[in-house]
Simulated assay, not measured.
Amino acid sequence: MRAILGVLVLLALGSCSRPQLEPVTVETQQSALLQAEVARLVTYPRFGDFDPYEWESRKPQTYPIHGIDVSRWQADIDWNAAKRAGVSFAFFKATEGGDLKDPKFDNHRLGARAAGVPWAAYHYYYFCRSAEEQARWFIRNVPRGADLPHVLDMEWTPRSKTCTKRPSGAKVRSEARKFLAILQAHYDRRPIIYTTVDFYKDTGIGQVGGTEFWLRSVAGHPSEVYPGGRWTFWQYTGTGEVPGVEGEVDINVFRGGPEAWVRWRDRIGG
Rank of each mutant, 00 (worst) to 15 (best):
K83C: 00
Q74C: 09
W214R: 07
K201Q: 12
I268V: 09
H108E: 12
L5K: 14
N80C: 00
I77L: 07
Y226E: 00
D51W: 11
E37P: 00
S15V: 15
R190N: 01
P227T: 06
V245G: 11
A181V: 01
G98P: 04
V225D: 01
P64S: 12
V24E: 15
H221M: 07
K165H: 10
D99Q: 13
P149R: 06
R136K: 12
A36L: 03
L152N: 04
G209K: 14
I193H: 03
A112K: 11
W234Q: 00
R263Q: 07
W231T: 04
Y126W: 14
G209E: 14
N107P: 01
P158M: 02
R177S: 10
K59M: 09
C128T: 02
F50P: 02
P258Q: 08
V70L: 12
G6P: 03
I139N: 07
G240P: 10
V197L: 12
V253A: 10
A185D: 14
R190F: 00
R2V: 01
Y122G: 08
F89A: 02
G97L: 10
R166C: 00
I4Y: 11
T162P: 06
A32F: 12
V26N: 11
T195G: 03
Y44F: 15
R40C: 00
I192A: 04
N252Y: 13
E259T: 10
P23C: 02
G228F: 04
T157Y: 01
K178T: 15
I268Y: 10
A82V: 02
T239I: 00
L11P: 02
Y53V: 14
P143C: 06
V208P: 11
A260M: 02
L11I: 13
K83D: 01
T195E: 05
A3E: 14
A146K: 09
R84Q: 14
Y194N: 05
N80T: 06
R129K: 15
R173Q: 08
S217P: 07
R2I: 02
S168N: 07
V262N: 03
T28F: 01
L8S: 09
F179C: 02
R18P: 00
Y226S: 02
T203I: 04
I68R: 08
Q134N: 03
G111M: 10
L5R: 13
E246Y: 07
V9M: 15
A81Q: 14
K104C: 05
T237W: 05
G48W: 13
P118T: 04
R84T: 12
E259Q: 14
V262W: 08
L5D: 09
V142P: 06
R267G: 07
D266N: 15
P167Q: 11
V225G: 03
G269T: 08
E175L: 04
G220C: 04
L5F: 13
G229T: 01
D69F: 10
A146N: 13
L5T: 06
G209H: 13
A32H: 13
